[in-house]
Design a protein around this nucleic acid. Structure first.
Lengths: 185, 185
DNA sequence: ACCTGAACACCGTTCAAGT
DNA sequence: ACCTGAACACCGTTCAAGT
């Protein structure tokens, strides 16, 4: 019944997904494992590190081969951004978790390197920062919509929500168009 | 000696600037005003609202005429993004505060409307989300650099720090190039 | 190595009561 | 209208002690 680091990260992701980031406390993660809060510090030095490990886990679900999809580098970059966004949106408050942890070591992630190979460093950073921000914004709107649905259950779903996916696609295409223009000088 | 809402927001911004977002608690803001924590709730319904008011204050420092600077809409948009970033970077953790509050009501801010007039809705959103993310990333690197400077005072300043300003300029130009390309179809 | 139990120094928020 | 005082239900983290 004794736990290791992977157990702690997995439990933390469960709590995150069920209760959201603001309720994802060390104490609740400990409770999820039926353990005292202090026991967590045997596996992880602090909460910040635990969040970074959770972010790694969320991003790790992305297939590395995604970047090679499509004939052109531009198509590969587009697919990578979409996969990154999907991975973050797949878990509650995932965008916040990944963005905070990733911004910390921007320039050091595998996915940024992959993107940089396709569209250059500037393009990669621009795409990444936009993707993080757009995903955070999407998730915020979704949870606001859920709250609204709870308050007035008769209402139809916010039509803007479908738009956010398309808005993301257009934003990425805008940046990719800029990358093509600038690199063909 | 009695306070009003503006006093509370001003005190909160002082605490933010001196102690950072993670130490900007309702209790410390109250202490800054020599008042009990519960007194704040006479001026503000909760912390989230206070943070939104702080964000408004930070953004309000931007001159609205900035958007009209330069001959072309593209130049106006570039100037607006730079002004927004400068405003956020001017106060400690300002980017986090503004980004969180602004993402909440993206589509409702004056500055987004202004940008939308210049480069269209998609362009405005893309520029804004990128600007938020880049500013957050810049501020994160800066405080990491400060921490590093504290730990090893002999070191020179991180050379990457100067690059962040130029990296931002290149990112914005990339997006603007994309906007020009797409809109001239 | 992994965990318990107890403690320390904090949080945001509510509410009756004062002036 | 604005504030105090006290309370409630929480936090992250440390540390001696157990097995």
């Amino acid at each position: 019944m004794r736990n290791n680091r992977a157990d702690v990260v997995a439990a933390a992701l469960r709590v995150l997904n069920e209760q959201g980031l603001e309720n994802c406390s060390m104490r609740r993660v400990a409770a999820e494992l039926d353990v005292q809060p202090s026991a967590l510090y045997h596996h992880v030095p602090n909460k910040q590190t635990l969040l970074a490990l959770m972010a790694d886990e969320i991003v790790a679900s992305i297939d590395v081969a995604t970047a090679d999809a499509g004939a052109t580098p531009i198509q590969g970059a587009r697919a990578t951004c979409r996969a990154l966004r999907d991975a973050m949106l797949a878990v509650r408050d995932g965008a916040d978790v990944v963005a905070t942890a990733a911004a910390f070591r921007l320039g050091a992630s595998v996915i940024e390197e992959r993107l940089a190979e396709l569209v250059g460093e500037d393009g990669a950073r621009t795409l990444l920062l936009y993707t993080f921000g757009q995903a955070q914004s999407t998730q915020m709107h979704r949870q606001a919509a859920e709250l609204g649905a709870l308050l007035s259950p008769g209402e139809l779903a916010d039509p803007e929500l479908h738009d956010l996916d398309e808005s993301f696609a257009r934003g990425v295409d805008l940046i990719l168009a800029g990358i093509e223009t600038v690199s063909s000088n």
